[in-house]
Nucleic acid binder design. Sequence first.
DNA 1: CTGTTAGCGCCTTCAG
DNA 2: CTGAAGGCGCTAACAG
Lengths: 332, 332
Amino acid sequence: MADVGRLAGVSATTVSFVINASPGEVIRPETRRRVLAAVEELGYRPNRAAQGLRTRRTSTIGFITDEVAVEAFVGQIITGAHDVAWHNGSVLLVINTMRSRAVTRAALDNLADRQVDSIIFASAGTRRVALPPSPGHVPTILVNCFTANDSVPCVLPDEVGGGRAAVRILIDAGHTNIAYLTGTPGAWATRGRLRGFREELRQAGIDPRNQIVEAGNYQADSGYELTLELLTKRHRPTAILCGNDRMALGSLMALRQKGVDVPAEMSLVGYDDQDALVTRISPTITNVRLPFYEMGRWAAERMFGQGAQGLAPRTQMPCVPVLRESVSAPRS
Amino acid sequence: MADVGRLAGVSATTVSFVINASPGEVIRPETRRRVLAAVEELGYRPNRAAQGLRTRRTSTIGFITDEVAVEAFVGQIITGAHDVAWHNGSVLLVINTMRSRAVTRAALDNLADRQVDSIIFASAGTRRVALPPSPGHVPTILVNCFTANDSVPCVLPDEVGGGRAAVRILIDAGHTNIAYLTGTPGAWATRGRLRGFREELRQAGIDPRNQIVEAGNYQADSGYELTLELLTKRHRPTAILCGNDRMALGSLMALRQKGVDVPAEMSLVGYDDQDALVTRISPTITNVRLPFYEMGRWAAERMFGQGAQGLAPRTQMPCVPVLRESVSAPRS
DNA sequence: CTGTTAGCGCCTTCAG
DNA sequence: CTGAAGGCGCTAACAG
């Protein structure tokens, strides 16, 4: 930087002013031109580490997660947070904890030591986490998880609304006899979706107690087996709602095997909207999409606004219906 | 740090020596104890940004990629690189380019400005990339991609070996009439796998020209349709090898639909080993696994050894067979 | 409008 | 064995 100043015939300070377009500093156009030329000639690039030391702002967001690889869900959260960060000149420092509490603790310390501006903590599955107290007071937001006492602001998918949206798709298509093959009973997501399922039916004047609800486990086999079972019942439903896309896939395989056409003879709705599973298949599966990308964006956006100050303890993002080929009106 | 020294009754220099266990510096145990106690009491943590400025080592690896979210492949590479980095006290700065050349260029500059120790550039699909010349001379390794003139060392999956391994599974099970539903013709991976397919057959004394080879497109529908077609042929194969897991899934659906039992009447082998697709289904699909995690590890490991110096221009990592339920001996 | 001075927090000679 | 001095590259007051 001193070299640049020397070449341009000015001091390092002036170079800094020019490069950063420091607000309040007025530089004569001629000087600015000379400085820029010198920067160009020397191929000078400011050292961000030094800047960070001086300004106490590293333009870095720490991103801690359970697990980057499984399910590609976390990948979407990262992508959302990344896009916003990049747009604001920041970048993501990613640490994978593999759900180890020790690693989580170490990651938090490490990120604080590196002077990150803020921390986003994301979980692959929606759940309660016990976050060790962060050293220093780095603004922190939780994505797809929450703490017991809501001590840290978080953003979650609106699963109840998602459950309602899923049923609404089928009701709108004219179905009144809908089977719901749920995911693992007790899981946070399962409970919300089921509640939404019932609420929406009731609101449409359909008694949820007349609908078949079977508990699966979010794996393809459970969708497959529960569907085979379903097909043997007397009062066969005209539509199946699945706990997630893997189950929907299993269900589809069972329907194929039994020669039941989708959607002509049976409508099918998945949940999660996992691209690889759901759009590269025939028929493409109507779905409710989880807002992972949006939650990632949301969290990062907060970091460039008021930080984690003044946020509601919990924010919900909508799960939106995605209409594809697997739903049609029931056969009359 | 000065505060810690004051509390312990020593200089900041001594604190530094104690904290870093600086080699060559001998500290009296009593002094060390006092320093450590002061560190503890004050909750002192060294500022990594300042350390980085001074030592010119940030313990940070820049990780640039096409796309974090799709396919979960990149997630595995990140995980591999991350694990090695973390083990060595380093951390990953992740940038997503969305295949934009401008972003890639900016990412390279940004990482150099941030003084990362090294850069790993990973692609979601195996392909040739045109990497803008890195400013500064940060050691760089390519994962799952390569440059035209091999100017940057890279690590790639051994697709020829993978193709061989896939056929070998079936030959070992006793099959001699094997159909191969390939992925998109012309793709680097497709060509390698097909070559391996032929080599291994020939070596087993089977003429590849007698085997059915059909070109698909790596999507589930192509597996589905090609399989339906296959089942109408006179000389029906006893085993199907698919270009990837999505195609295998499509194939499985076609077989189900036609009432062909897997593996009793037809053996099936996928490729890629995408967990979500392949193990959460019945039957679980025998596979050849792409070494994404290993390639990520490999690249990061180099960065803690000789850097990118003295590496072979291309390194291949083996694709290993994963035996599951979808293969059995052919019906005699 | 521009230059001087003084650190940010740490590590590394070099003297004791 | 320990401390003093200097500087990594940059920016923020404060003068001119």
